[in-house]
């Protein structure tokens, strides 16, 4: 009896698994946006190594120059003027657009990646703990998150800029703090459904501690939905930085960011639309890429694995 059972099971496995083991394909819907983000990250990381002017260097003779204009400007690290072709033109006071775009990518990426990371770590931990323990812990966390959600975000950002000064770290921390409640909610909702499942009960029955159950059984199941949500958060926060520039709440000038570039180009929109449109297009593509990757990841979560 036992032997035949083993044979049956083994035979059934061999047939069924070959098909099921196929690798899930990511496809161009993932690789194109991932490639663009790779390009932006590469540009931001290597911005200092290219033979181009520093983002603050001004060519007074070529203000709001069209893409392709040739002018004379000091390249980064040099004191002499040299001939340089502004591939993407210059902005309204004559700074190289490409250089500002690459340095600006640093700000956008730092805000877009670090702030959600803070939200994810803090909010994720709070949400998982609240969803697992339920009861009073849950009540306290949910109440605290509701307070933060109800608090006007702009008032907080204004207060931080006013008292602590406008700086990139302050901005990242503030936006991170503001993204905690949403992450906590996503984590809590997923934890509630995972913690009800029987493998959690089985872990308790074998004598596992709460910490073990949280780290080994729950978090791996909550991580994927949280990551998908984080992709959305990245996109939202990159746009948020752009919006905050218009209120003067982003990084202080002359540090370039995509948001401040769009804002500064506004004055010359009728004569030199490229000053606004190029950073806007780059921001749009980047945000779109993060959204597409998020969508792709969501559809990749195996429905068998995510079902209840």
């Amino acid at each position: 009896m036992a032997e035949t059972a083993i044979d049956n099971v083994a035979a059934g496995e061999a047939e069924g698994l070959a098909g099921r083991r196929r690798r899930r394909r990511l496809g161009p819907g993932f690789w194109l946006p991932a490639g663009w983000i790779g390009l932006v990250v590469f540009g931001a990381a290597t911005a200092g190594f290219w033979p181009m002017p520093a983002p603050e260097t001004i060519d007074f003779l070529n203000r709001a120059a069209m893409p392709g204009t040739v002018g004379e400007i000091e390249l980064a690290g040099q004191t002499e003027l040299s001939e340089f072709r502004y591939l993407l033109g210059t902005d309204n006071i004559g700074r190289d657009m490409l250089s500002r775009l690459l340095y600006g990518a640093r700000v956008s990426l730092l805000i877009g990646l670090l702030s959600p990371l803070i939200g994810l770590l803090v909010g994720g931990a709070l949400g998982v703990v609240a969803g697992y323990y339920r009861g009073r812990v849950d009540g306290a966390v949910v109440a605290a998150m509701d307070v933060i959600l109800a608090f006007p975000a702009l008032a907080l950002l204004l207060a931080i800029t006013f008292y602590l000064g406008p700086s990139l770290p302050n901005l990242i921390l503030a936006l991170g703090f503001l993204s905690v409640p949403a992450s906590a909610r996503v984590a809590r909702a997923n934890t509630l459904s995972v913690a009800r499942r029987e493998f959690v009960l089985a872990a308790k029955a074998m004598g596992a501690s709460d910490l073990y159950i949280l780290v080994r059984e729950i978090v791996p199941n909550v991580l994927m939905p949280l990551l998908v949500f984080a992709m959305l958060l990245v996109a939202v926060l990159i746009v948020a930085e752009g919006t905050l520039s218009f209120l003067g709440l982003s990084v202080p000038p002359p540090t370039p960011s995509w948001g401040t570039m769009i804002e500064e180009g506004r004055e010359l929109l009728d004569q030199a639309p490229h000053v606004t449109m190029i950073p806007a297009a780059v921001m749009c593509l980047t945000v779109l890429s993060f959204n597409l990757i998020g969508d792709r990841l969501r559809s990749l979560i195996d429905p068998r694995e995510s079902r209840l």
Partner: peptide, 23 residues
Amino acid sequence: LRRLRPKLQMIFQDPIASLNPRH
């Protein structure tokens, strides 16, 4: 209780929900 738990074990109705899909 935790020391005694290994002596009492349980199997459940839903065979798929009984196993952590990530492990």
